[in-house]
């Protein structure tokens, strides 16, 4: 008993290509779980039976950047790790988004120290910041929904005339 049962005759829908593409895109965001520290555990919790991230179409966690369009940076990013995070981000195909999960990634959080990057937006474009140390799984789901809203509003022209991202790091 699906949608077909309601339709009496052959139905049709009028929409724009943009709308249907962004609808499809936002409903199956594949995350790249960049689990670095404590937040990674809450990120796994978000995928467990209680919180079940699959309800939002994002249960397909891929550990290879080539198959993902969302990077969830979960955990404290040190200067040593920053090189790795940036390199993985560069390998992801366009279009791509970033969630900064937790206080450490957003601003350095409680780690005012010599080795911690004070906010990953210094070297990555971040779309959604999530508060909490670590954020509860609900909060991560909220961030995902916010991002879906943002993806839903994208138009094809947003991707046109976009400057090519510097691939220097990806190639060396």
């Amino acid at each position: 008993m699906g949608l077909e049962a309601i339709l009496q005759k052959d139905g049709y829908v009028t929409t724009t290509i943009d709308a249907i593409v962004s609808w499809a895109r936002k409903s199956s965001v594949w995350p790249m779980p960049m689990g670095i520290s404590c937040c990674a555990i809450e990120m796994i919790s978000a995928a467990d039976p209680k919180y079940d991230i699959a309800r939002f179409g994002s249960e397909v966690m891929r550990f290879t950047p080539r198959q993902c369009d969302l990077m969830i940076v979960a955990g404290t990013v040190t200067y040593k790790m920053a090189q790795v995070v940036r390199r993985i981000y560069d390998q992801m195909p366009e279009p791509k988004w970033v969630i900064a999960m937790g206080a450490c990634t957003s601003s350095g959080g409680m780690y005012r120290s010599y080795s911690v990057v004070q906010g990953i937006d210094q070297f990555l474009p971040v779309d959604v910041y999530t508060a909490g140390c670590p954020p509860r799984p609900e909060n991560l789901l909220n961030a995902l929904m916010t991002l879906q809203e943002k993806i839903g509003k994208t138009k094809a022209r947003d991707f046109q005339n976009r400057p090519l991202v510097d691939l220097e790091l990806a190639q060396n």
């Binding site: 005012r112 120290s113 991202v165 510097d166 220097e168």
Partner: peptide, 18 residues
Amino acid sequence: DFPLLGIPGSLPFPKKAE
């Protein structure tokens, strides 16, 4: 004698995104 917040520039950033 090493400051808590480190010495600026001693650890490099990756290249900044466009």
